[in-house]
Amino acid sequence: MSSAALTKDEMAARVARDIPYGAYVNLGIGQPTLVADHLDADAGVVLHTENGMLNMGRAAVGDEVDPDLTNAGKQPVTELPGSSYFDSAESFAMMRGGHLDVCVLGAFQVSAGGDIANWHTGAPDAIPAVGGAMDLAIGAKQVFVMMTLFAKDGSPKLVPSCTYPLTGVGCVARVYTEVAVFDLTPDGVVVLDTFGTTYDELAERLDVPLTQG
């Protein structure tokens, strides 16, 4: 337990700490991308980007920028020694085939049973876009979600059952938030860590049964 809620960077560092040595990892667009900054070079982690590359390097700057070399967010990136390129069908075969160890996704909502909603608010004027989220959610061996625990209106995003359209069913293993880390197990939601809050306070504010880890 720590005394203050985590910043986005501290959340990213907390996720990075749980990624096993040598893992093949896909980081989703947005906040999960920050996790890359907290992976030590000697952790042996290989980053996968769904547009067709393994062992992706950091963001490209200056002369390194190459329009033929981008990440899933279409930002210019670099390659590391030992990288490889492949087409989109193969890239997604790596996910569905269970070859990817971890993916880290953002989410609008996660249910206690591990369902994730992260692609569409369902609002009538919203333009739906799913990208690779559904393939990642069901494909990676372990799906980590990184999100704030409460929406802007204060409502919890860890819920008994998702109200937004689903991305994947029963696939999330762990949820990292600014105030707590949750393990989603077949026996229920386990609070692993709290930051600037207490187990009792979380139990009060969330509508899902919790167990103290």
């Binding site: 769904e50 087409d87 989109s88 069908a89 890239s91 997604f92 075969a93 996910m95 569905r96 739906p128 876009a129 799913v130 990208g131 690779g132 989220a133 559904m134 393939d135 069901i138 494909g139």
Partner: peptide, 25 residues
Amino acid sequence: LVPQGNLGERMRAAGAGIGAFFSPT
């Protein structure tokens, strides 16, 4: 709207003469 992996695999199937496939996505 088609999930990206299904999009690629549906074209792969067309090119490879596969009539349809079952996807977990």
